[in-house]
Design a protein around this nucleic acid. Sequence first.
DNA 1: TGCCATTCGTTTTTT
DNA 2: ACGAATGGCA
Length: 720
Amino acid sequence: MTASSTPDVPPVSSTVRKLDRAQSQLDAKGAPAEPFVLPPVAGGMNDAQREAVRHLDGPCLVLAGAGSGKTRVITQKIGYLLRDCGYNARNVAALTFTNKAAKEMAERVKSVAAPNQLKGLTISTFHSLGVRLLREEAKKVGLKPAFSILASDDALGIVQDLIATTDKGRLRAVQNTISLWKNALVEPDEAERIASTEGEREAARAYRSYNATLRAYQSVDFDDLIRLPAQLLERDDEARERWQSRLRYMLVDEYQDTNACQYRLVQLITGPRAMFTAVGDDDQAIYAWRGATIENLAKLTTDYPNLKVIKLEQNYRSVQRILAAANRVIEKNPKLFDKKLWSDLGAGDPIVVVPMDGEEAEAESVAVRISAARFEKKAQWKDFAILYRSNHQARAMEQALRNLKIPYMVSGGQSFFDKAEVRDVLAYLRLIANDEDDPAMIRAITTPKRGVGQATLEVLGNYAGEREIPLFAAIFETGLEQRLAARQLAQLREFGEFIHRMQWRAGRGASGEAITSAEPAGEILDDLLRAINYERYLYDTFDERGAQARWQTVLDLTGWLRRKAEEDNMTLVELVQHIALITMLEKNDEEDPDVVRLSTLHASKGLEYPHVYLVGVEEGLLPHLGKDDEEGDPAKAAESLVARVQEERRLMYVGITRAQRSLHVTWCKKRKRGREDVAREPSRFIEEMGLGGEKIVDTTPAMSAKDRLGMLKALLNKGG
DNA sequence: TGCCATTCGTTTTTT
DNA sequence: ACGAATGGCA
C-alpha cells in the first residue's frame, strides 16, 4: 500500500537519510537549539496530560481515548511552546482534518497565550496547509499561483470525458479508486501494475490522463493538495529545508485518520529533528474508506525509535454506564494499543434501548422524548443531539422536529459548495482567477444560457485542442472566424470581454499575478450577478419557492465573500483561490444557538452532548455493510468484510462516546425501502453493549397526533 | 427520432 | 424521495 517501491518516490529510509544531511547543514547554520530546561506547565491537567505537553525531547504520540482531553493537550502544548519555550508562533503548526476542528482549536488557543504571542501561528487543515504551500511554490510544481481547486463534481466531469460511459456509479468508482491511489502515494505506473479487478484496471488506464487533464486546466483536486506538496518536498532539497526551518514544531490532531500521503508530508516537514506531537485514538479511526490507515499509528513506533508514547485514559466526558457500554463494544475489535478508559463522573442513568415500528415512529418518538426530557431535566435544546449513520436518515427526523416546533440544525450533510447555484457563481470567479480553468469556462459560459451551446463549444474545443490553448484564450483567436457563425462569435467575444473586465477590476494583472489596484470584492460580485442576470435565470428555471431558496443561497455566498474579503483585506482573486476548501460551517459564526443537533456519526466526531439519541441502530444501517466487491476472491472478500465491520464498530463507539449524561439507542423493526416495508434486525452492536438486566426496553407506542398536541401545549404552558 | 412521463431501484461516511 | 432508464407518443 505504501509507495516504497515506486521509482519516483524514494522509500522512507533514504528520505530520512537525505533529510539528515539537509538538517545537519541547517543546524550548522545556527538554528536555535531546543530549550534545555523545561519550565513548569500551567495546572488543570492530570499527570499524563502534563507529560504529553512537556515532552519535547523528540517525537511524541499521545493515545487519547474519547473524552480524555486531547484538544486540551494540544492547545496547552501550543501555549507551552510559545509562552515558556521561546518558540515563535510562525514556527508552530497544528493540523486538523476539518475546518470546524481548526476553528475550534484556534478559539481555544486564545486562552492559552497572549494575542501578540499567537501572531503567525498556523492552525489549519491538512488541505489548507497544502494549498498555502502549493501557492507559494507553484512555479516549482509547474502551476501558476492562481491554479484552481476542483470540487469532486468537477473532477468527476473530467473522469467522464476520459471514460466512455454514462454510468455515474462507474465514474464515481473510477474517481474513487484514483483518489485512494493518490492518498496511498501510488503513481500511475504502479497503479497499472497492481490493478487487480476490472474496475481498477479501468481506473489505472484513466489515471495518467486524468492528471494530465488537471494539469492542462491549471487545476488540482483535493488529493493533490497533499500529494503535490509531499512530492515537491521529497524532490526539492531547497524547498524542503525552507519549510523545515519554517515549521519547526507540528501538532497533528486525529492522527489515526491520516493517510499515507499525509504521513509523508508530516515526515518531510518535520524532518529528522522530528519535533512533532501526534494525537490520536485507534478506536476512533473511521475514515479508512477515504484512504486513512491506522497503520500510520503503528508505523510511527517503528519509524521513530525514540517515539514517546503517552496514553490518556481518564475520561472527563461520560458517566460510567456510558463509558462501560462503549468499552464493551470496542473490546470486540483487535487492539493496536491497549488502553482502558475510566471515569469518576458517577454511574449515571441506565442506557435506554427502544425498538420502534418504523422510521416516522422513531423520529416522532425521539422528538417527543427530547421535548419531555428538556422539560424534566430543565435542559436546553442544545444539550441534545440526534446521531445517525447516513444523511438520508435526517429527513424523517427533521420532519418530526418541525412538527413539534423544536429548533434544530443539521450539521454534516452535503456541502454548501456542492449546491448547483454556488458552483455556478464560483465558476465565474474561478474563471476570473484562472482563465485556463476549462471546466469553469464551460460552466460559466453556459449558465445562464447565452446562445452558446453544445455545437459552438465543440468548435471552440476542437480549435483549442489543435492549438493546445485553453478554451478561454481560443475565444480571441482570429482563426475562429472561418468556423463559427458571426452571431456565435460575437457572443463568445462579448463573454470574453466581460471576463477580461472583471479580471481587471478584481485585481488580476494581465499575466495572472495579483496587482494592488483591485476594487472591493463586494462591488465586483454585485456587478457580476447583475450582469449575468442570475436572479432572473433562477426564477426562469425554477418555481417561485425553489428560485427564492437558491437566490438566498447565492446571497449568503456573496455576503460571506464580501465580509471575508474586507476582514482579511483580500482581493477577490486572492479570496477565490482558497475558497474551495472553506466549509459553510465557517459561515455560521453565530455562536452555538440553542437548537437540537442532527449529525451523522462521522461529522459528530470530536463533539460532545449531554444527551445523545443514537437512531437507526440496525443491521444493514449500522453496521452498514455494502456488497462484497473483490470479484471472485472469497478469502479477500471475507477479510474486507471483517475490516468493514470493525470500522462500523468504531463508528458505534464514536457515537456512544459522544454522550455525557444520557444515551438513547433506537432501532426500527420495519423500515421503508423503496415502497415496501422491510423487516429489520437490531444491530449486533446493541447486544455488544452488554446492557444485561440494566437495559430498559421501552415499548411505549408513539403518541397519537392529538396526544402530542396536548402534550406540546402542556409543555409550552409549564415551560414558559 | 427525440422528448416526456412513468416506473423501478437504491452503499455510506467528507476534505 | 430522488435519479435513471425505459417505453410510448408525437
